[in-house]
Lab assay of single mutants.
Amino acid sequence: SIVTKIISIVQERQNMDDGAPVKTRDIADAAGLSIYQVRLYLEQLHDVGVLEKVNAGKGVPGLWRLL
């Protein structure tokens, strides 16, 4: 499923980069989806406690990390 793919992308990127959070844009590119589509999935995963959003604010790139 797309959700499983997104989780594995975040996991893979974090492992490659010493646990650093992953940008929404990088996840979207790797999943082959638009940034808006991916954001909806990321928000859902956040709501159920799978991911945390590391930063927030208007015009700030979203950074995500697995919990």
Score class of each variant (00 low, 15 high):
S1N: 12
S1M: 11
S1P: 08
S1K: 10
S1V: 10
I2K: 03
I2A: 04
V3I: 14
V3S: 07
T4S: 14
K5R: 13
K5P: 00
I7K: 04
I7W: 04
S8G: 10
I9F: 14
I9Q: 01
Q11F: 10
Q11N: 09
Q11Y: 12
Q11K: 14
Q11G: 08
E12F: 12
E12K: 09
E12T: 11
R13F: 14
R13H: 07
Q14M: 13
Q14W: 05
N15Y: 10
N15M: 13
N15P: 02
N15L: 11
M16N: 10
M16D: 07
M16Q: 12
D17T: 15
D17H: 15
D18K: 12
G19M: 06
G19E: 04
G19V: 03
G19F: 06
A20R: 13
A20D: 09
A20T: 08
V22I: 08
K23N: 10
K23P: 14
K23Y: 05
T24R: 01
T24C: 04
T24Q: 03
R25S: 12
R25T: 11
R25D: 10
R25Q: 15
D26I: 06
I27Y: 08
I27K: 00
I27W: 01
A28F: 02
A28Q: 02
D29T: 12
D29Y: 13
D29I: 13
A30P: 01
A30Q: 10
A30S: 07
A30L: 07
A30F: 04
A31G: 02
A31V: 14
A31R: 01
G32T: 03
L33I: 10
L33A: 02
S34Q: 06
S34I: 04
S34D: 10
I35T: 07
I35A: 05
Y36D: 13
V38E: 00
R39D: 06
L40W: 14
L40N: 07
L40E: 09
L42F: 01
L42C: 07
L42V: 02
Q44W: 15
L45N: 01
L45V: 02
H46T: 13
H46I: 08
H46M: 10
V48E: 15
V48W: 14
V48S: 12
G49F: 03
G49K: 04
V50G: 00
V50D: 06
L51E: 02
L51G: 01
E52G: 07
E52W: 03
K53A: 04
V54N: 01
V54T: 07
N55E: 09
N55T: 09
N55P: 11
N55I: 07
N55M: 07
A56V: 12
G57E: 09
G57Q: 07
G57W: 05
G57Y: 06
K58C: 09
K58D: 15
K58E: 14
G59Q: 06
V60W: 12
V60T: 14
V60G: 15
P61D: 15
P61M: 12
P61S: 12
G62A: 15
G62Y: 15
L63I: 05
L63A: 13
L63S: 10
W64K: 00
R65A: 07
R65T: 07
R65C: 05
L66N: 02
